[in-house]
Every structure is written in structure tokens, then in C-alpha cells.
Design a protein around this nucleic acid. Sequence first.
DNA 1: TAGATTGTTAATCGATTAACAATC
DNA 2: TAGATTGTTAATCGATTAACAATC
Lengths: 218, 218
Amino acid sequence: MEGTNTIRSIPAQTLKRLPTYLSFLRSDVCADSPFVSAGKLAAALDRTEIQVRKDLAAVSTTGGRPKVGFAREALIRDIEDFLGLRNVDSAILAGVGGFGGALLGYNGFQNCGITIVAAFDDDPALAGSSLHGTHILGMDKLTSLCKRLHIHIGVLCVENALAQQTADKMIAGGVLAIWNFTDVTLQTPEGVAVRTENLTDSLTLLLHELLQRMRSEA
Amino acid sequence: MEGTNTIRSIPAQTLKRLPTYLSFLRSDVCADSPFVSAGKLAAALDRTEIQVRKDLAAVSTTGGRPKVGFAREALIRDIEDFLGLRNVDSAILAGVGGFGGALLGYNGFQNCGITIVAAFDDDPALAGSSLHGTHILGMDKLTSLCKRLHIHIGVLCVENALAQQTADKMIAGGVLAIWNFTDVTLQTPEGVAVRTENLTDSLTLLLHELLQRMRSEA
DNA sequence: TAGATTGTTAATCGATTAACAATC
DNA sequence: TAGATTGTTAATCGATTAACAATC
């Protein structure tokens, strides 16, 4: 119960919003002043001021100054620390078709301190080539390479039918976090973190919203 | 207050889970039997049985049969109806670089009944060409084409810096639903539905989870 | 009948919002 | 001082879970 090393725990919903705050704080829109108020963040991110204040209170170490706001730089550092960023890490990517190929050219990895050290694909025509500066290897090399280089992050962009087995290969290689771009709900052991970007589900929800609006308009 | 035409309203969190149920029900794993139990869904999708039962109760018109489960086909139809799918609709896509290009080859659109009728890009080298069977036009044509063809859905894949202004063009053309693949929080009028796939935020949360697990392991 | 499964009502839990106090 | 903004405590709201009844 004692000790300062305990990991602070914050509401799950607050956690989800932190990256949004972070990217806004880092953006040009904020760069003009060394201070940002909760109200300004709220307006830009389309949330209530009270919610933003509470969220920031949960992670800010220095707190804000009445009438002034939060020191931008300090707040950025607090959020980064809380999220555990500022760690450079390596990752591999499986499935270079369509999406996977596009992701190899995605800046976001660098912004998050991630380097894609290799990509894998079943297509023999691709093995040996490289894309956006990343080498492509056969899928059979995935597990061993992850083991050898102690890779903990895998990006999964294969077809749905291959999703589970490819995830299994990653896990066998020691991967602990999977960024899942397939539409499959992966079955993984306890220790493995999975984040699924299910585009089909997401599009479905957008269409639902559209339809509702068109209905209520009629 | 009276009348059967009122739109049923369900919890927001239930709504979010419906597409997941739907895609599982449609999948091969379910095809062997005409019935599915809440327990089976729960196990496959990593949720509690009680939650699934409550969610299904909210949308199922016929209800389930004790000891048997829900009729698969009927349940699929109920969810589709509720979500307002089974409407064919047209969409346009802006920004054919990286992601946008990959999305043009994405099956999910057809599965959701969406046809991408045109793509737009600022790069003059691309205008006039086509990719994955979709014509690419200059960005200046976006608004007028949307108006002319009564397009209501826009997919936004341009660079962050161009995000807002491109969204504005879509809205000027009558687009009512934007699928946003940029990292920008768009400012849009009331009537417009926006769904943002902020990959950077999502990756950030995955890294956070990874770090927490590695910490607690140590 | 017994057992599996659905369906519903009540209890708990967590998140958001509101109200207000504190401070520069 | 007055006003803007933060910070905290209490009230409301919604979602999840638990308990149990209903049914094939």
C-alpha cells in the first residue's frame, strides 16, 4: 500500500482520450503559446471543458495555474510519461498486400518511436524484395526472426483467413503486442496485448449513423 | 408517443458491439448449425455471456429459444435491419497516396454495400489514371461531382494538413458521412457524421498496454 | 424430470456532469 | 477587486454484472 512506485491508475475512458490530447498539444495550433487551457482543448477536440479538466487532473504532475492554464511542454511530458512513450522499440509487419504495404510507408511509426525492422509475406514473388525501405521475407522466417531480435510488436495485415495462424507465429516468436488490421477476433494468451482496427465494423457503424440522420431528416 | 414507427433506441455500447456479432454470425465458424447460443458468441468474441444475451435481447425480434439458442439467419437479419444495412450506396475517396490507394482495393466496401464511384487527388500525375478500377480525378472536381451524383459518403485519406479543407469540400458537395483516416479532429456542422480512424492514437494505446505488461512482469 | 438456455429485474459499478470552492 | 480558470466533492446517469424466474 505504501511507496511511490505504484502505477497510478486512471479511468479507462480517460486513458483512451490521452492520445488525442497529446496530439493536439503537439500540433501547430498550440505552438503559439506556452500555455493551454482546458477550455481550449475542449473546444478543439469537441468535448466538455469539465471532462478535459478532470482528465488532465489525472495525469498532470504540476497541475494548471488558475487564469493561465497548463504549461504546454510540461503537460506533453506528463502525458508521454503516463502513456509510457519515449521508448524506442522494434516491430515486424506481416502481410504486405494492400494495407500492409501502405502501412510500411506510414509516418506514425516513427512518431511513436517504432521501427519496422522487417516485413513478411506468403507471396514468393515478394520475398527478397523491399518496400518503402523495409525488407520482405517469407512467412516461415517470422517466428525465428522475432525470437532472434527480441521483437515484441507485430502488425497483422494478412487476409482474414490467415489471421489467427499468423498471430500464433508472432506469439511463438515472443511478440507481446499485436496491432490487428484483420477483421478477426484473435484468440491469444493472457499476456499478449491486442488492438484491433476492424475497418468493416467501423464502416458499418458510420453507415448506421448516416442512415439515422437521413431518417430523422425525412 | 404512440405508433410503431419510432426508432428503437439501444445503449450506445450495445450498438458498438453489434457489428462484431454480425460478422461472427456471418462467418464460417457459425455456418455448421442454424442456431447459435449467447454462450457461443461470448466465447468467440471474448465477452461475458450475460452481456451478449442482453445485447441480443435489444435487437432480436423473435427472441431465442431456451435450450436451443437464436436462429442464426433471423438474428443476422435483425441486426442488419437495426444497423440499417442492406442499402446500396455510393461513396467517393479523397487522397490516393498510401492508405487511400490501399482502401481502393479493400473488399469491405462491397461487403457493406458501398461502391466507390471516384477518387480524388491533388497530384496532377494521378489525375486521369485509375487504381483498382476506380477513376482518379483532380481535387477541384470533388465538390461538383458529389453534388451531381448525390454522393453522401466520403472517405478522407489526405495528409493531415489538407484534412479540414478537403472535408469542407466534401460537405460543400453534400456529403453527410465522413470516414476519416487522418489524425485530425474535424470541425463539421451538426448534420454530418464523422468516424475517425486515428491510427496514431490507436498505436499509442497499444504501446501503453505493452509497456504496462512488461512493467508488471518485471 | 432435469438441465440448458433465455429473459428480466435488481444491485453494483464506473463515468460524466453539475455545483461550488480555491487561486492567481 | 473582479474575472478567469483550476480543482474537488456530490449528484446524476448509464452500463455491467448478479440473481433469479421462465421455458423448452
